Simulated assay, not measured.
Amino acid sequence: MLPADPTDVPVLRLTGDVVALARDLCDIPSVSGDEATIADAVEAALRPYEHLEVTRNAHAVVARTVQGRAQRVVVAGHLDTVPIADNLPVRIVGEGIHRELWGRGTVDMKAGVAVQLALAAELVAPSRDITWIFYDNEEVASERNGLGRLVREAPELVQGDFAVLCEPTAAGIEGGCNGTLRVHVRVPGVAAHSARAWIGVNAIHGASEVLRRLADYEPRSIEVEGLVYREGMNAVGIRGGLAGNVIPDECVVTVNFRFAPSRTPEEALEHVLELFDGFEVTVDDLAAGARPGLDAPMAVEFADAVLGLTGGVPAPKYGWTDVARFAELGIPAVNFGPGDPLLAHKDDERCPAYQIEVCHAALLAWLAA
């Protein structure tokens, strides 16, 4: 990879106002697949700090302390966002406790990345060695995920005793995550001229049975290690039709199944195949969930320290996050970051400034103790 022209790299100031840093990060567009500029900015901001070893892998940046501590904590966050919806640059709305950052990435998850960057600069001599990971392509298919690429290409950079994903949790702790399965359900038909429709078979009409099964489906709520995960089965896309005067010979419904971490990926796929028995089903994406793991010693210590400042009790993570990737490596991991996950990916995405400050203070207190 050619080095970026320094004059083209946005400047990120890691010391000072963490809320301003979050705004600056959000104002660098970084839709999945277009993270080069923000990765350049993050790398350039971290390189001057002598207590950090900085490594670049494609559009992922890893910064590590190597101070011989007894334990290593991994703190990770992704740099990419879903597509912009006329919601950049960021606006600041309200004052005081009601101040909010409005715009793409404020929730998912550049406010969390701002907390990471500020702490990476600030924690010169932490109580544990820390690995800060900033990675690309989290919002797309799992085979493109930058953290997954690090696991394959540089596994030594992701090793640790405990991990924190700064995904949005409204400054609470969310344990584990649901798995995700995306499939294409194909409905066949027979093409014909629409003026002679009776000699064809309309595949789009045939898709009504797929949609009926989805409408009748009752998702389960499943308790796993004391946390209740809600599953979901939904159509997220449909395509069919060749021209305005042709009976379509194929219709494909794309279905996303979010499954509790008590199910294996194989069990999740079997469940979907049973639901759509009689149709051709092909897998587009599949990623396992992660059990909460909140009984791990470092997870207990983390929860005691953080919730003592933020309040509340641990909750389940309904979406998929890379805690699942750490779970596969045998590393206990939790989700903890600013922003309401219910606002992730919405056009009116917004994050309270105080949650950014609270998450920064809580992680600082724990990692410096």
Rank of each mutant, 00 (worst) to 15 (best):
S262M: 09
T264V: 14
G226V: 02
E225Q: 15
G289C: 14
T264H: 10
A296Q: 08
R213P: 02
S221Y: 02
S262C: 09
E270C: 01
R213T: 09
E274H: 13
R291S: 07
L273G: 00
A243V: 02
R230T: 12
I238P: 00
G226I: 02
E270I: 02
A296Y: 03
L269G: 06
L214D: 04
V272R: 11
V283P: 06
E218Y: 00
E266S: 12
N234K: 07
T282Y: 04
E218T: 14
V272P: 06
E225G: 06
E250K: 14
L269Y: 09
A268M: 07
F257R: 11
S221R: 13
T282L: 03
F259S: 11
Y229L: 03
A288N: 07
F279S: 05
V246R: 06
E250H: 13
A260S: 15
G278V: 11
A268Y: 06
N256Q: 14
E225M: 09
P219C: 02
R258Q: 12
A288K: 10
E223C: 02
G278Q: 13
P265H: 05
G278N: 13
P219Y: 02
E267W: 11
M233W: 07
P219R: 01
Y217H: 15
G226Y: 06
I238E: 04
L275K: 10
D285V: 03
V253F: 08
E225D: 15
L286Q: 15
I247V: 15
F276K: 08
L242S: 11
L227C: 04
V252P: 10
E250S: 15
N245P: 00
R213G: 03
G289T: 13
G289F: 14
E218I: 07
A296R: 03
E250I: 12
R230W: 02
F259E: 09
P265E: 03
V236N: 00
S262D: 15
R212A: 12
V252C: 13
L269I: 10
E231K: 01
V255L: 07
A235E: 05
D277G: 05
A287C: 11
G244D: 04
G232Y: 01
D284F: 01
V224W: 08
R220D: 10
E231I: 01
V224Q: 07
T264Q: 09
A235F: 04
I238S: 05
D285G: 05
E274S: 12
T254Q: 11
D285L: 04
I222R: 13
I247E: 06
V236I: 15
E250T: 15
F257T: 08
L286P: 02
G240N: 05
G289N: 12
E223A: 10
E270P: 00
C251E: 05
A260C: 12
E280A: 15
R239K: 09
R291P: 00
E280K: 13
D284V: 11
A290P: 03
G232D: 08
P219D: 02
S221H: 06
A215P: 00
V252Y: 14
C251D: 04
R239D: 01
P219M: 02
A235D: 01
R258P: 01
N234A: 13
V283T: 15
R258M: 08
L294N: 03
V283S: 07
E267S: 13
E231C: 01
E225Y: 10
D216G: 03
N245R: 05
V283F: 10
F276R: 07
R263I: 01
A288R: 14
R213V: 11
L242C: 00
